[in-house]
Simulated assay, not measured.
Amino acid sequence: MSTADDVSTAWVRRYHPVVGAGKRLVCFPHAGGSASFFRPVSARFSPGADAVLIVRRARCAMRRRSSR
């Protein structure tokens, strides 16, 4: 991954960053879900693993784009 271990971006969230973790858990939201669903998972696995949460584009942005 090219993102620094302690950085969140528009597409990646880290609620409990673990710098230099030996393990990384990548979580994709379920249909209709969001990255915040995995906040408790991130807390549970910290500090043993770095939970990287993928952020989906907002549905309203997708609707605006498709209505053009």
Rank of each mutant, 00 (worst) to 15 (best):
M62E: 03
P47Q: 02
C60W: 13
A35E: 15
G22N: 09
R64Q: 06
V7P: 05
G33T: 02
D50Q: 15
A51S: 13
R65S: 11
A31N: 05
R14F: 06
V7G: 00
F38C: 11
F28R: 05
G33A: 15
R63F: 07
F45E: 13
A51Y: 05
A35Y: 12
V19N: 02
V7I: 14
A61Y: 06
D5A: 15
S46D: 15
S8F: 02
P17M: 04
G33P: 03
F37G: 11
L53I: 05
G32K: 05
C60K: 08
R24C: 00
R64N: 03
P17A: 02
R39G: 08
P17I: 00
A21T: 04
G33E: 13
G33C: 08
V19K: 01
R13W: 05
I54H: 06
P29Y: 07
Y15E: 06
G20V: 00
M62C: 07
F38N: 12
R63M: 02
A49W: 13
A35C: 12
C27W: 03
V12F: 06
A43P: 04
R39N: 13
H16I: 00
S8M: 07
R59H: 09
S36Q: 15
R39T: 02
V19L: 00
S46C: 12
R14C: 05
R57I: 01
P29T: 01
D6M: 05
L53R: 07
R14T: 04
S42W: 10
A21I: 01
R65L: 08
P29Q: 10
R63D: 07
S42T: 07
C60T: 14
D5W: 13
A31R: 08
R56K: 10
P17N: 03
F28E: 04
R24T: 07
I54C: 14
F45Q: 04
G32H: 09
R63Q: 05
R44M: 13
P40I: 09
G48E: 11
V12A: 03
A51M: 10
C60Q: 11
D6F: 10
C27N: 01
R59A: 08
A58V: 02
M62F: 06
S36N: 11
P29F: 08
D50E: 15
A10R: 13
S2I: 11
R14M: 03
G20M: 00
M62I: 12
S67Q: 11
K23W: 08
C27M: 06
A31M: 09
D50S: 09
P40G: 14
A4T: 11
A21W: 00
R63W: 08
R68A: 14
R59F: 12
V41I: 15
S34Q: 14
S36A: 15
S67K: 08
F45A: 12
S66C: 01
V18N: 00
R56Y: 14
